[in-house]
Amino acid sequence: MFLLIKEKPITTTTLDKYNNLAFYIAQIKHGSFKAIYLYNEIIDKFPTRVVTYLNLGHCYWVIGNEELAKENYNKYVELMKSQNKDLRKFLSRFGR
């Protein structure tokens, strides 16, 4: 991943592709660890990218790190609220 990002940096042009790549890597057995690295790289460059926090939270949850999962879910909710986005779909997943 490091070499890929070094060769083709995360920019506004490549952002969606990297986010999609991380999402698909996370679906592979034990892929969450690689996806976590990639999501954190995305957040480093684009700290207000809402969906990345949701996906990162999910990856942390899968590997059993509930504290970091909750931290990222909370950041997701905070950004959704600050951007006046609809939280109903997310909250319904958690029985709220």
Results as ranks from 00 to 15, higher is better:
M1T: 02
L4D: 04
I5V: 13
E7T: 06
E7R: 15
K8V: 10
K8E: 14
I10F: 09
T11S: 09
T12E: 12
T13I: 12
T13H: 12
D16Y: 06
D16R: 01
Y18A: 00
Y18N: 00
N19Q: 04
A22D: 05
A26R: 02
A26W: 01
A26Y: 00
A26G: 00
Q27I: 01
Q27Y: 00
I28L: 08
I28Q: 14
K29R: 09
H30K: 11
H30D: 15
G31C: 04
S32T: 08
F33M: 11
F33I: 13
F33H: 13
F33K: 12
F33D: 12
A35N: 03
A35R: 04
A35D: 02
I36Y: 11
Y37H: 12
Y37N: 02
Y37R: 03
L38M: 05
L38D: 05
N40Q: 10
N40R: 04
E41K: 03
I42Y: 12
I42H: 11
I43L: 08
I43H: 07
I43T: 04
D44G: 09
K45I: 13
K45M: 11
K45L: 12
F46Q: 04
F46V: 05
F46E: 08
P47F: 10
P47N: 10
T48D: 13
R49A: 08
R49V: 07
V50L: 07
V50C: 07
V51C: 03
T52P: 01
Y53I: 06
Y53R: 01
N55K: 02
N55H: 03
L56S: 03
L56T: 00
G57M: 07
H58M: 10
H58N: 13
C59V: 03
C59Y: 07
Y60V: 00
Y60K: 07
Y60T: 02
W61N: 15
V62M: 15
V62F: 14
V62H: 10
V62N: 13
I63F: 15
G64C: 05
G64K: 08
G64N: 04
G64H: 11
N65T: 07
E66P: 06
E67F: 07
A69E: 09
A69T: 03
E71W: 01
N72T: 05
N72Y: 02
N72G: 06
N72D: 11
Y73W: 11
N74M: 14
K75L: 13
K75R: 15
Y76L: 07
V77F: 11
V77H: 14
V77E: 15
E78K: 13
E78W: 11
L79A: 07
M80H: 14
K81T: 10
K81G: 05
K81F: 12
S82A: 15
S82Q: 15
Q83I: 06
N84T: 03
N84I: 08
N84V: 05
K85M: 15
K85Q: 15
D86M: 12
D86Y: 14
L87Q: 13
L87I: 13
R88A: 11
R88F: 09
F90M: 06
F90R: 06
L91I: 09
F94R: 08
G95T: 09
G95Q: 11
